[in-house]
Design a protein around this nucleic acid. Structure first.
Lengths: 198, 198
DNA sequence: TCGATGACAGATATTGAAATCTGTCAGCGC
DNA sequence: GCGCTGACAGATTTCAATATCTGTCATCGA
C-alpha cells in the first residue's frame, strides 16, 4: 500500500481546509471534500461522524495555528505590563491579518463563533488562561495588584472583545481604530497597575 | 378635516413600529404600513423618501426612548464613580430588557447596527458624550485622573461592547454574565481612579 | 478482517416562473 | 392648489419542482 494514498484524518482536514478556502463555508460540501481526495463521500464519514465535526476540526487546527505566537508571548519573560500590551496588540494583529489573508476561513470562524460552538469556547478559555499567566507574573513582579487573577483575565479579554471578536471585524480597518486601541490599552493597564508605588 | 385622519410622519412612524413588531424586520413592507393606516403606499412615500429612511426614523425614535434614562443619569449630581457604575449597569439592563420585551425591534436594531447605519453611529456618539460628561465630572471632583476625557470615554464604551452591542445579545442570559460584568466594571473604575489619593 | 464503496432515504439547496414589493408620477377629487 | 391615489417598471421575494447533499449501511475487494 502506498502511504500517500491512505486516507487519514490529516489528509481529510487538509483537503477540507482547501475546499473551504475555495468555495467558502456556505458552498462547501462533504461531497466536494471527497471529490478533492478522489474518494467516495462515505469514506469521509468513516473518519468524521458528521460535517459539523469535520468543520470544527478544521477550525480547531486553524485556531491553534493562529494561537501559537500568543502562547509564546505568555510563556516569555520580562515585565508583565509590556508583555500584556504586546500580547493584546499581537492578538489584534493576528485577527486583522487573518481577516485580510484568509477571508473564507475567517467567515467560517465567524459562523462558528456566532453558533458559540465548543471549539471556539475552548479556544477563548485558552486565551484567557494565557492572559491569566501574564497577569499572575505581574502580580509576582509586584507591578500588578489583582484580587482575582482569573476573573480579571476574563475582564481584560471581555473588554477587548471589539478588537478580536469577528463580529466587529468590519470596524478594524477604520482610521480611528488605532487611537481607540491605544486609549483602551492604557485604561486597562492603569486598572491593573499596583497603586501607590512610590 | 378631522385631525385624526391627517397622515402625519408621526402616525406613519407609529404604524411602522407596530408593523415591525408584528411581522419582524424581514417581513415588514411599506405596503403593510400603508394597509395599517388605510392609505395607499404612495402616500407613505410622500412623507419618507425610502423604506430605509422610514426604518431609520423608527429606529431613532426607539433608540431615543431607550436612551432617556441614561441622559438623566449623566446629568445627575453625585460622586462620579458611583454614577458611572450606575450608568453602565443601567445601559446593560436597558439592552437586556429590550431584547426580552421587544425582540423584533431589537432584531431591527441589530440589523441597523451591523449595517453601521448613520442612526446607530450618532446614537453611539451620544452615549460616548454622556460617558464623557460623567468622566469630566469625576475629574472635577478629583476622583478621576484622565488625560483625554473624550478618548477615555470612548475606551470605556468600547470595553463594554460585549454587554451592549446586540451582536453579543445571546451571551447576556448566561449565568456567569453578572460576575464577568462585575470584574469588568471594577477593572475599569480602577483604571479611571486618581492614583495615590492619600 | 478492514477500509472503502455506492445506493438509498430524508433533509436541504437550487432554480426559474409567478407574485409581490419599491419607488415614481400623471392625474383625480376636495 | 394640495394631498392622495393607483397604475406602472424594474427589483426583489416567494413557491414549488427539481437537484443536490447528508448520513447510513449492506456489500465488495484486498
Amino acid at each position: 500500500m502506498n502511504e500517500a494514498v491512505v486516507l487519514t484524518p490529516e489528509r481529510i482536514l487538509e483537503a477540507t481546509e482547501d475546499v473551504l478556502r475555495r468555495f467558502g463555508l456556505a458552498k462547501a460540501t462533504v461531497v466536494d471534500v471527497a471529490r478533492a481526495l478522489d474518494v467516495s463521500h462515505g469514506s469521509v464519514y468513516r473518519h468524521f461522524p458528521s460535517k459539523a465535526s469535520l468543520r470544527d476540526a478544521v477550525a480547531k487546527r486553524w485556531l491553534d495555528r493562529a494561537n501559537e505566537p500568543l502562547c509564546k508571548l505568555a510563556a516569555a519573560d520580562g515585565p508583565a505590563p509590556e508583555r500584556l500590551e504586546k500580547w493584546l496588540r499581537t492578538m489584534f494583529a493576528i485577527k486583522q491579518k487573518k481577516v485580510c489573508d484568509d477571508p473564507e476561513m475567517f467567515a467560517t470562524y465567524l459562523a462558528l463563533a456566532q453558533e458559540a460552538r465548543e471549539v471556539v469556547e475552548s479556544y477563548k478559555d485558552k486565551q484567557v488562561d494565557l492572559l491569566a499567566k501574564i497577569l499572575s507574573d505581574g502580580v509576582a513582579q509586584g507591578v500588578f495588584e489583582i484580587d482575582d487573577v482569573k476573573a480579571t483575565a476574563r475582564a481584560v479579554f471581555d473588554s477587548t472583545v471589539r478588537y478580536h471578536h469577528p463580529a466587529h471585524a468590519e470596524e478594524w480597518a477604520k482610521p480611528e481604530c488605532p487611537a481607540r486601541i491605544e486609549a483602551l490599552i492604557s485604561l486597562l493597564l492603569r486598572g491593573l497597575q499596583a497603586p501607590c508605588k512610590h
